[in-house]
Computed example of a mutant assay.
Amino acid sequence: MEIPEKVLKLRYHILGALLLCLTIFSVVLVAPRLMTLLGYFWPLLLSTALVLALVFFFAKTCPLSSTDSTSFQNAGQTLLDYVAGHHEPPLDSRHKSD
């Protein structure tokens, strides 16, 4: 009589453990193997790693000076003004086809 009462007391723990075991078992059987995924995606992973390495390399070797950052801000503001429609006509109003 004592064992069924303890099993009944732990029924949610036992059910949770069974569900966890079934989930792990089904993932192992159904999911593709890691080497299969790496074999399929290795070009994408390699190119992404190379691009990130180049970005870090250029960030370390080409630091921006303070004058460069202000010119970038001015260029960005000019571009935003142009896109917003607040641009001035070009100085040379003649077209190349004239």
Rank of each mutant, 00 (worst) to 15 (best):
Y40P: 00
Y40T: 08
F25T: 15
L38I: 07
D98H: 14
A84Y: 04
L54Q: 02
L46M: 05
S97W: 14
V83M: 14
I14C: 05
P63C: 02
L34S: 08
D68F: 01
L29E: 06
S69L: 14
H95N: 08
Q73A: 15
F57G: 12
L34Y: 13
L20P: 01
A53C: 08
K60P: 02
G85H: 02
C21T: 13
R33W: 11
T36L: 05
P63V: 01
P32F: 03
L34R: 11
L44R: 04
C21K: 04
F58Y: 10
V55N: 02
A49M: 05
D98M: 08
T36P: 00
L52R: 04
G16I: 12
G85T: 03
F57S: 07
F41H: 02
S47F: 05
D81I: 00
F41W: 05
A49C: 02
G16S: 13
D68T: 08
H86I: 01
V51E: 02
D92L: 11
T67H: 05
H86C: 07
S97E: 12
D68G: 09
L15H: 13
W42K: 07
I14F: 14
F41T: 06
T36M: 02
P63M: 01
Q77V: 07
S71M: 07
V27M: 13
P43M: 01
R33C: 03
D98L: 10
S93M: 12
S69N: 07
S26W: 14
S65A: 04
S66D: 05
V30P: 00
K60L: 12
S93Y: 11
T78Y: 07
A75W: 15
V51Q: 01
D68P: 00
